[in-house]
Structures are given as structure tokens and as C-alpha cells.
Simulated assay, not measured.
Amino acid sequence: MGTLNVRTDDAMEKALVELTAARHSSRSEAVRYALLQTYKQLLLQQANADAQRLADDPDDQAEMLAIQRFMGVA
């Protein structure tokens, strides 16, 4: 496991105090939690963007319709 040093400002200190109190955790655990939550949000945003891109793609829509017809769903 690696080590990360982070310089904090007043806003970060306040956030750390709130996270550690709310989760009854250490500062390191609060930072890990916040980092993983941010990463999860990024992945969800990327998945949503991909889904929207595919939903807006006429070629993909045609292929999905063809698959549905093949499977007897449409």
C-alpha cells in the first residue's frame, strides 16, 4: 500500500472533521472513502455518457431493433 501526503486548506480541514465525525473514522479512512466515492461517481458519469451516446446513435438503435426482432421481442 502506498502513502500519500496531502496539503489541506481550511475547507479541506472542515471536510475532514465532518467526514471523520460522521463515519467515526480516521483522517486516512475519510480520505480513502472520499477518493473512492469520487472515483465511483466518475465511473457512473462515464457509463451514463456512454449509454446516452449509444441511445443517440441511429446505427446502434437499428442493431438493437434487429436483435430484438431476431429474438422475437419486438
Score class of each variant (00 low, 15 high):
residue 63 E to V: 11
residue 22 A to Q: 08
residue 73 V to E: 02
residue 58 P to M: 04
residue 36 L to G: 00
residue 46 Q to H: 09
residue 63 E to I: 11
residue 9 D to W: 02
residue 63 E to T: 14
residue 50 D to W: 08
residue 40 K to V: 10
residue 46 Q to W: 02
residue 45 Q to A: 15
residue 70 F to Q: 15
residue 53 R to W: 06
residue 71 M to V: 11
residue 59 D to S: 10
residue 3 T to D: 06
residue 1 M to F: 09
residue 63 E to C: 10
residue 49 A to E: 15
residue 18 E to A: 09
residue 73 V to A: 01
residue 54 L to S: 09
residue 3 T to S: 11
residue 73 V to Q: 06
residue 52 Q to I: 11
residue 36 L to K: 11
residue 55 A to K: 12
residue 69 R to D: 14
residue 69 R to V: 02
residue 12 M to F: 09
residue 56 D to V: 00
residue 7 R to H: 04
residue 32 R to H: 05
residue 18 E to C: 03
residue 21 A to T: 11
residue 35 L to Y: 07
residue 60 D to Q: 15
residue 5 N to S: 10
residue 51 A to C: 08
residue 52 Q to M: 13
residue 50 D to I: 12
residue 8 T to H: 02
residue 34 A to N: 05
residue 66 A to G: 12
residue 59 D to K: 13
residue 20 T to M: 07
residue 20 T to H: 04
residue 23 R to N: 13
residue 37 Q to K: 12
residue 14 K to H: 03
residue 28 S to K: 05
residue 37 Q to D: 09
residue 29 E to D: 04
residue 37 Q to Y: 00
residue 64 M to A: 14
residue 38 T to Y: 05
residue 43 L to P: 06
residue 38 T to G: 08
residue 15 A to Y: 04
residue 59 D to V: 03
residue 59 D to T: 08
residue 29 E to G: 12
residue 14 K to S: 09
residue 71 M to N: 07
residue 19 L to D: 04
residue 62 A to R: 15
residue 73 V to G: 02
residue 61 Q to E: 12
residue 25 S to W: 01
residue 31 V to P: 02
residue 7 R to L: 09
residue 53 R to N: 08
residue 16 L to Y: 01
